[in-house]
Simulated scan of single mutants.
Amino acid sequence: MGSVRAAALARRSWPKVTDDAPDDAELADLLEAAGRVADHGALVPWRVIALRGEARRRLGDALVEAAAVEGEAAAKLAAKPVRAPLLLALVAVVQPHPKVAEWEQEACAAGVGHMLTLLLDEAGWGVMWRTGPHTRHPVVAGMHGLAEGERLMGWLYVGGKPATGRPERRRAPVAEGRLSSLD
């Protein structure tokens, strides 16, 4: 097992994946670890919805309806969710709390999503976190069966890593100029 730092430095977004995907047992195991992120108030303000098979097509239809597009644009948008065999919808479950602000609860859910990308990558899966202008549209929320107070944070597109090799790192080093100190 490698270090957390090594996993973070090795992580890449995999925009193209194979048709292989983790099963629900593996996902539950990875979520057990991902769910250990900082969680003020121990609210566990998140959940994950696995979309496989036809559920991905229903998501494509919901995106098209939310975008109100037709023709070629609709076909292109509808095809996006089928680019991976598994989509993991990350959901913030925001609840009223006197000490834990809504943004903190969403931050916890985002933390689970990011940790899950690291864990999936370490387990050998290709992952890419995707969002878009319709992530929080009511039609898209309805397709996922979201309840009051639940907010979609995006989807992890998950599949096998192609044999052609890993994607190149596209970003230059990021830490320089982003750390400041106060005395």
Rank of each mutant, 00 (worst) to 15 (best):
M1C: 06
G2Y: 07
S3C: 03
V4F: 06
R5L: 09
R5W: 14
A6H: 09
A6C: 08
A7R: 06
A7W: 00
A7H: 01
A8F: 01
A10I: 08
A10M: 06
A10R: 11
R12C: 10
S13D: 12
V17C: 12
T18K: 04
D19C: 01
A21L: 01
P22M: 02
P22F: 00
D23T: 10
A28G: 11
L30C: 03
L31C: 04
E32K: 11
A33T: 11
A34K: 08
G35I: 01
V37I: 06
A38P: 10
A38N: 07
D39S: 08
H40I: 02
V44A: 14
V44E: 15
P45V: 03
V48K: 14
I49W: 13
R52C: 09
R52Y: 05
G53C: 04
R57Y: 01
R58D: 11
L59G: 04
L59R: 04
L59N: 05
D61K: 00
A62N: 04
L63T: 11
L63A: 07
E65G: 03
A66H: 04
V69T: 02
E70D: 13
E72L: 03
A74C: 09
A79Q: 06
A79I: 08
K80C: 05
K80A: 02
K80Y: 05
K80R: 15
P81M: 02
A84R: 07
A84W: 12
P85I: 07
L86S: 15
V91M: 02
A92C: 09
P96A: 05
H97G: 02
P98F: 02
P98K: 04
K99P: 00
V100Q: 09
W103G: 11
W103A: 05
E104S: 02
E104H: 06
Q105M: 01
Q105W: 10
E106M: 04
A110I: 01
A110K: 01
G113S: 15
L116T: 06
L116P: 07
L116W: 03
L116Q: 02
T117Y: 07
L118W: 03
L119E: 12
D121Y: 08
E122S: 00
G124E: 14
G126V: 03
V127L: 00
M128Q: 15
M128G: 05
W129R: 06
W129N: 12
R130Y: 00
G132R: 03
G132T: 14
H134F: 10
T135R: 05
R136Q: 12
R136A: 07
R136D: 12
V140G: 05
V140Y: 02
A141P: 02
G142A: 13
M143E: 09
L146S: 12
L146N: 14
A147P: 11
R151Q: 15
M153A: 05
G154M: 10
G154H: 11
G154F: 02
W155Q: 15
W155H: 15
L156I: 09
L156W: 02
K161S: 09
K161E: 15
A163Y: 12
A163D: 15
T164Q: 07
R166V: 08
R166G: 14
P167G: 08
E168C: 00
R169I: 00
A172I: 00
V174K: 03
V174M: 06
R178P: 10
S180D: 14
D183T: 14
